[in-house]
Amino acid sequence: MSLFLQLTLTGLTNGAIYALIALGVVIIYKSSGVINFAQGAFLLVGAYVTYWVVGQVGAPWPVGVLATVVVAALLGILVERLALRPLIGEPIISVIMVTIGLSSLIAAIISLIWGTQSQPFPSFIPNQNITIFGAVTPADRLYALVLCGVFLLGFILFFRFTSEGIAMRAVADDQQAAMSMGISIQRIFAVAWAIAAVVAAVAGILVANIVGVSSDVSRIGLQVFPVVILGGLDSIPGAIVGGAVIGLLQAYTGGYIGGGTEQVIPFIILVIVLMVKPYGLFGQTRIERV
């Protein structure tokens, strides 16, 4: 029983990190219909900028986090402006490849500046062990869980009550109609990329705190695809539920079956979901029969 509890806790906290990364993907997809394969690179940016400002320059950590948020937001806007906007109306393969190219470029620039050696992350997030019902977890994982809840609530409120959020939903629904209502689509895309980059950078800080600052941080970006597909590409609650389900499944298969099965199980789930219910648990169904 205690193993079960332990695995559940590990799964949920890992799932929270997945969900955070998935949130960014969902927000970009929701407004512009683009899947961002560079999400892993944004994680790297978050990890390294914080490491640089806090660990190397020696600034207090709130400054570091603030700097990371600002850099990530600027990067998101820059990427949208320089790489994505010229590709509006181009086939999907081009859009996918440009984000892949970006991720390669960003990762390379980071390696050029900081090298590939794994660095210890400055410890400002407390990570002593906390015991809950006999299951032990480092405190930083719980922060991910809390942060995830805060972001979720924030985004639900943002999309429901602010004019910016409503405009984003309008753009996602019908770009031409949104334009004729006076919404600047370019602005909305830029905001979506900025938000996605910031969320990913924050997730990057949490991941780096767990695995250390290295290029491995971006590996976790791949795990995000099973999560978003399971939850539905355009659903924010879906990202959270998908993150939790994939995190839990990985923890259970790793704990009970072992042998590396936890690495492949998300992708098997992914194939099954795509075959049975391609739009995921909460995604909007677009009916197109061939």
Partner: peptide, 29 residues
């Protein structure tokens, strides 16, 4: 390629990504 019968575009790309990861895993394991 069977998923391609139901999926296209982005969804197919992600399905083939899964194929990549699954085959790679099988080879290693």
């Amino acid at each position: 390629g069977i998923p391609a019968l139901r999926l296209k575009g982005l969804y197919l790309a992600i399905a083939t990504l899964a194929a990549q990861e699954i085959i790679e895993w099988v080879i290693i394991h």
